[in-house]
């Protein structure tokens, strides 16, 4: 009797597992198909990486990014249909029908030129507004984490007073709000796998809400050109299970600010260009 129950349990578990796997596998397959279509259009492009990547918008790990990724696939489908339609018509016109095409010009201009775009765009606009409303940041809450940007590092200040640098600790599965500030020029806070970006503008405080679905590390970058260190102004978000959060945060806290590390490597062409510019200035008698 117990063995039968055991077998039934195992089968039930197996069923649940395969169902869960199926649920997760299908969207990935669709995404992969969409990616392949994209590649197909680029003549002879090789697609070895797929759509996955630590900074990929198409590998969402949070609800905001998930919604945008879905929106993207829908828009891509629509765009491909329209492009095919327009190019198909233009190429069809090259066929030697010799002036046998009769249709009402006004119907084409009003129907296709006005009505069709209006309808499509209205639907898109409604979807866009609805999504946008969903992603709005609410008013200042208790749990706002301060994210301060400066050339070229990020420092985070938590409600409990701790501070970290270039690593942001959050609780997985919970929404958190950031208050973005800047100490010098405009920077932009962006963790592609979790959601959209928001600029950090000196003199202003911009708020954004994000959420990570599961524990893990999610890379982020500065997304507004801010000087020569811009390409290296990276950070990461570490999402923890609620139990592990406090310990991880305490372990990483730093007492104060430290200098940003700017990677400088020698660039051969750079030296040549500099020498040449110096030579020209000397010849002109300027230096």
């Amino acid at each position: 009797m117990n063995r039968v129950a055991e077998q039934r349990d195992t089968r039930a578990h197996a069923d649940v597992r395969s169902f869960v796997e199926f649920r997760h596998a299908r969207p990935t397959r669709l995404r992969a198909k969409g990616c392949r279509a994209l590649f197909g259009l680029a003549a002879g492009a090789l697609a070895l990486g797929g759509c996955a990547g630590e900074l990929s918008i198409l590998e969402p790990a949070g609800p905001a990014a998930e919604r945008v990724a879905t929106l993207w696939w829908i828009m891509l489908g629509g765009a491909l249909v329209i492009l095919t339609g327009v190019m198909g018509t233009a190429l069809y016109a090259l066929r030697p029908d010799r002036g046998t095409r009769q249709f009402s010009e006004r119907r084409v201009l009003i129907g296709w030129g006005l009505m069709f775009p209006f309808a499509t765009l209205l639907a898109l606009m409604a979807a866009a507004f609805w999504r946008g409303e969903q992603l709005l940041a609410r008013a200042e809450t208790e749990d706002t984490i301060g994210a301060h940007s400066q050339q070229w590092l990020w420092s985070f200040a938590y409600p409990d007073g701790s501070r970290t640098q270039n690593v942001l600790h959050v609780v997985a599965g919970e929404e958190f709000t950031l208050a973005l500030t800047s100490g010098d020029v405009i920077h932009s806070f962006w963790v592609p796998r979790l959601g959209g970006k928001m600029d950090a503008i000196p003199g202003k405080v911009n708020r954004m809400r994000l959420e990570a679905d599961a524990p893990g590390t999610y890379r982020g970058i500065c997304a507004e050109y801010c000087g020569i260190g811009h390409a290296h102004m990276e950070f990461e978000i570490r999402a923890h299970a609620p139990a592990d959060y406090q310990a991880a945060l305490a372990a990483d806290s730093v007492p104060g600010d430290s200098e940003p590390v700017l990677e400088q490597r020698s660039a051969p062409a750079a030296r040549i260009i500099e020498n040449w510019a110096d030579y020209l200035l000397e010849w002109l008698g300027v230096q």
Partner: peptide, 17 residues
């Protein structure tokens, strides 16, 4: 067509810059 896509604010929040 990609212009229409980026006119949609939530999508632009991802692909801007």
């Amino acid at each position: 067509l990609t212009g229409v896509m980026v006119a949609v604010v939530p999508f632009d929040w991802q692909v801007h810059d």
